[in-house]
Write a protein that binds this DNA or RNA. Structure first.
Length: 954
RNA sequence: GCGGGAGUCGCCCAGCCUGGUCAAAGGCGCAGGGCUUAGGACCCUGUCUCUAAGGAGUUCGUGGGUUCAAAUCCCACCUCCCGCACCA
């Protein structure tokens, strides 16, 4: 039988939609509010995106069956800049992006035509993604859907950001950004050629030297080396500019003069001076020392200020340049000696000299100098210590001393920040080379605030984080988080209410929006309009502040409506579970918590975060350039939604990267097909239970308990595994037993088992589970049925334990046959009947179930008890029993202890003969050790131990 | 550099928190058998080494340690992956 997946899926999806099953309103039942980070619609979703949503959907469906009133909503995050960049590129007719849209995403031509308008791109992919979600069978309440640029949402964001400001969480300050001087805009990855992220190095500094009335500003990553300066380097072939910078006069390269204009400085060129004119003169450093200026060709005017300070003891390039001059008998250079200021193990007094000699550097143009610089820099940073040349900082480790020296210089106006683009040159898509610009009126969320962090920590302490081992990462993130820009100058979104030049940044308008799901339903159905959503209304509904009638009048709503909104929010909040990918741990998920604790009272803080890993495709990372992206909708069409859901879930535990491949999809399809075939309507009632019936029914019970617990901890792979495979091996053992006995009266039992199994499968594979449920003869939907209840009373300890006994006996026989390669003519079993052995066995069992495993201790306890003191006569037996019991689970041991009067001989004689005959093709005879008519030609019987019959094979 | 994570029997991947149920689940692959006109699918058996009695030996990145007992706990080391911000 081949399943028409899409056909089945459409059929059941329509039933769900018809019965409005997933539309959730407050009622008397306990609620669960499960949310996933909404998507940014600038491309169709692929299988990787499907993972988070699928996990959340399983979660939601599970709790629905457990009897909760589950709200699982969805929105679309339009806020941000990527679609702006896309629209621009599409407008410019860029081939690369157009090809991508046509060939990878299969966007129709007439849709592409509209894409010059950014919102149209978002609108198109919004619908595309939504369709995919519906086709995947996600149980979403679509009545609450919104995008982040609709007026109602914007009202909500205005309220959020105003509230944060009122609570003192927002501050203003300066911040460096990558900037396009032509477009007059900040640039991010999406705005640059080759999609490079402009990386800003703000550990770069400028140190000021006096040169008459002028200042020589010199950039360095190592401010501590000022103590070891011997000279400055200037390129004799460069014409430098004399410029006024605010109220100082600087000498810098032309390129540098342009850069510092973007640092909020008033810059004016007032003259020129050539490098050769400066050479040979002296500048003054911070402590008044005279520093000579020497020539060096390696000085590039485009780097830093176009001037370089020389620390030959610690900078290989400086050392080599100095040596090169000495070789040419440069008079001044010959007098200069390196000044060592850092002591590092493994290096002599002049480390730069050591490393240059070690690597065999020939001259200052030698490429090996890069390597030397890097190696020495790192080594001195991690291991080096400042020496007594460094005054008050001597004896400090470099990595700590550097910051102190930096701060000290800054205080005394010898140092300023000089952020640079680490990966320069970065080109804007317009072609211009990007610069670093310092924005001085940027708005920040003050995540660095210790009191705020403390609140977040409190929240994390009480929150359930799944999987638990990612909790430490959250704690770390909260630790190092500091001010974060919350506004930007372009892109879609909501304007800052108090400063309309800025738009609320996209990671800041997506942190508490789950609250808006409780309101959006009423906006969407017209109960309220965006104009009604006043600050007073939000305060009342979300924070329980103010008075209903007052709020009603300012928001122009009835008191009833106002209270309806409030009731809805108070019913559904807090968020019970937030699902997201692990890449969002360091930003969205942490901000989600920080913003909740800043705005809401404790009872509305999030309860749980579930983090999942990403999806790989055949072991490789999915990427557009690799061409291995499979759009989710294509995959659904080709393989069916359920197989894809299961393939995603079954390939890895929560936090692991899941590997998606077609083999696993088809494996799952086959599995589901055979499961469907196994589902038949009940044709008989359950009659008298035999041993194997009691066993399989007990197994079903423990399976239910196991699966339920696994899902509660979101160990979905494990749960699915149990449903699909562990169950299978139990059932096949059962089938074997049934067949050996020639029974045909088990359809009632199988029906019962399959019902539980299908019900548990339904959150994972909801469509096909409905089909199975129908085949099982049910008229209602499985998604509306109750989760199978686990009851301990239905577990028959004796049945489980005795079936294990049967299995292990058969295993022993097969083992012997395998090793001896005998073809058996006769199999004889001898069960223990010695009452002393039984007593000792039970006593050992008792001791070991109590947790004691030590042979010596067990023996002592045995001897101490007069009932079992004879154990000292049979140490071999005791040792073997302990060993037997080591390899048994705690539950089996406990069960053995529970089932007191178990007759091994009767059981084996009754149950083993049928299956034994089938397995080994001969009759099996069972004797008791002390039977008078015993057949025991080889004297095997005395080896019998409780639950371990002796075996004779002829 | 800072922070997080991983290394398991051909491959993928469980187990580690809570030590004994672990020669270590499951899937894939491979080998043999069944089914089939054939192929596919499906089912059974095997898949570290040795073993003519249900057993033994050597394994979980490397080296130490704790323990009656270590894949699991502790220490050190090696290797690899990911994130580091104004970007969704």
């Amino acid at each position: 039988m081949t399943i028409n997946w899409n056909g089945i899926e459409t059929k059941w999806r329509n039933k769900w939609i018809e019965s409005k099953d997933f539309e959730t309103n407050p009622n008397d039942k306990p609620k669960k509010f499960i949310t996933v980070a909404y998507p940014y619609p600038n491309s169709p979703q692929h299988i990787g995106h499907g993972r988070t949503y699928t996990l959340a959907d399983v979660h939601a469906r599970f709790y629905r069956m457990k009897g909760y009133n589950v709200l699982f909503p969805m929105g679309f995050h339009y806020t941000g800049t990527p679609v702006l960049g896309m629209a621009k590129r599409i407008g410019a007719g860029e081939k690369e992006i157009l090809d991508g849209l046509r060939n990878i995403y299969h966007v129709p031509e007439d849709a592409i035509k509209t894409f010059v308008e950014p919102v149209k791109i978002a609108d198109y992919f919004h619908e595309e993604i939504k369709s995919g979600m519906i086709e995947m069978g996600y149980s979403i309440d679509w009545r609450r859907e919104f995008t982040t640029i609709v007026p109602g949402y914007q009202k909500f964001i205005e309220w959020q950001i105003t509230t944060l400001k009122e609570k003192g969480r927002i501050i203003q300050g300066s911040h460096p950004v990558g900037w396009c001087p032509v477009d007059q805009n900040p640039v991010s990855q999406h705005d640059t050629m080759g999609d490079v992220e402009p990386k800003i190095d703000d550990k770069n500094f400028l140190i000021k030297f006096k040169f008459g009335n002028f200042i020589f500003p010199i950039t360095t990553l190592r401010p501590e080396t000022i103590f070891g300066i011997t000279n400055l380097w200037v390129n004799p072939n460069t014409i430098y500019k004399k410029v006024t910078v605010d109220d100082e006069m600087w000498i810098v390269s032309e390129q540098c003069a342009k850069k510092i204009e973007f640092f909020e400085k008033q810059v004016k060129v007032i003259g020129e001076i050539s490098g050769s004119e400066i050479i040979g003169k002296y500048a003054t450093n911070h402590d008044g020392r005279e520093i000579p200026v020497l020539p060096a060709d390696f000085v590039e005017p485009s780097m830093g200020t176009g001037l370089v300070m020389s620390v030959p003891a610690h900078a290989p390039k400086d050392y080599q340049a100095l040596m090169d001059l000495r070789i040419k008998n440069h008079e001044l250079a010959s007098k200069i000696e390196p000044i060592p200021i850092i002591v590092t193990e493994g290096y002599g007094s002049i480390p730069a000299k050591d490393i240059c000699e070690k690597l065999g550097v020939s001259d200052q143009s030698d490429e090996k100098l890069e390597e030397a610089t890097k190696a020495l820099y790192l080594k001195e940073f991690t291991d080096g210590k400042l020496n007594d040349k460094c005054g008050q900082f001597s004896n400090e480790k470099v990595q700590f001393g550097r910051d102190k020296i930096r701060a000290w210089l800054q205080e005394n106006n010898f140092l300023e920040k000089f952020p640079v683009l680490e990966n320069a040159p970065v080109r804007c898509r317009c072609g211009a080379e990007c610069v670093v610009k310092i924005l001085n009126n940027q708005w920040f969320l003050n995540y660095g605030d210790e009191s705020w962090k403390e609140l977040a920590r409190n929240c994390f302490d009480e929150m359930n984080i799944l999987p638990n081992n990612i909790k430490t990462e959250f704690v770390e993130v909260i630790g190092w988080l500091h001010e974060r820009a919350c506004a930007r100058q372009q892109g879609l979104g909501t304007k800052l209410p108090w400063d309309k030049d800025w738009i609320v940044e996209s990671l800041s308008d997506s942190v508490i929006y789950m609250a808006y799901y409780t309101i959006s339903r009423f906006v969407n159905d017209g109960t309220v309009t965006p104009e009604n959503l006043t600050k007073e209304l939000f305060d009342y509904v979300l924070l329980d502040k103010g008075d209903a009638s007052l709020v009603a009048s300012t928001s122009k709503l009835s008191v009833d409506t106002v209270n309806l909104l409030k009731k809805e929010f108070q019913y559904f909040y807090p968020v019970d579970s937030r699902h997201s990918g692990r890449d969002l741990v360091q930003n969205h998920l942490s901000f989600f918590v920080l913003n909740h604790v800043a705005i809401f009272p404790k009872e509305h803080w999030p309860q749980e975060i579930v983090v999942n890993g990403s999806v790989m495709m055949d072991g490789a990372k999915m990427s557009k350039s690799m061409g291995n992206i499979i759009p989710l909708r294509t995959a659904i069409k080709d393989h069916g939604a359920d197989p894809i859901r299961l393939a995603i879930i079954s390939s890895a535990e929560l936090l692991q990267d899941a590997d998606f491949n077609m083999e696993s999809v088809s494996g799952i399809q086959n599995k589901l097909e055979s499961l469907l075939e196994d589902c038949n309507a009940k044709v008989s009632d359950i009659g008298n239970l035999e041993a194997e019936d009691r066993w399989i029914l007990s197994k079903t019970q423990s399976m239910i308990s196991q699966v339920t617990e696994a899902i509660e901890k979101m160990r979905l792979r494990e749960a699915l595994h149990d449903i699909l495979f562990t169950f299978e091996s139990d059932l096949s053992w059962y089938a074997k037993r049934i067949e050996a006995k020639g029974r045909s009266d088990i359809s009632g039992i199988l029906h019962k088992i399959n019902s539980a199994r299908v019900a548990m499968l339904s959150p994972f594979a909801p469509h096909i589970a409905e089909e199975m449920w129908q085949k099982l003869g049910y008229n209602e939907l499985v998604s509306k049925s109750s989760w199978p209840e686990y009851s301990k009373e239905n577990i028959d300890a004796t049945a489980i334990q005795s079936e294990e006994f049967l299995k292990s006996t058969i295993e022993d026989i097969s083992n012997i046959l395998k090793v001896t390669k005998i073809t058996p003519k006769k199999i004889v079993l001898y069960v223990n009947s010695d009452s002393m052995k039984t007593k000792v066995y039970r006593k050992i069992l008792e001791i070991m179930v109590g947790g004691q495993n030590n042979m010596g201790v067990v023996m002592k306890e045995l001897i101490a008890d007069p009932e079992t003191s004879d154990a000292k006569k049979m140490p071999d037996f005791v040792q073997k029993v302990i060993k037997d019991l080591y390899s048994e689970s705690e539950t089996i041991k406990a069960m053995k202890l529970e089932s007191e009067s178990f007759d091994e001989k009767e059981f084996l004689a009754k149950e083993l003969t049928s299956i034994g005959k089938k397995e080994f093709g001969v009759d099996i005879t069972v004797y008791s050790e002390n039977d008078s008519d015993i057949y025991d030609p080889k004297g095997k019987a005395r080896h019998a131990r409780p639950f371990k019959p002796a075996i004779l094979i002829e």
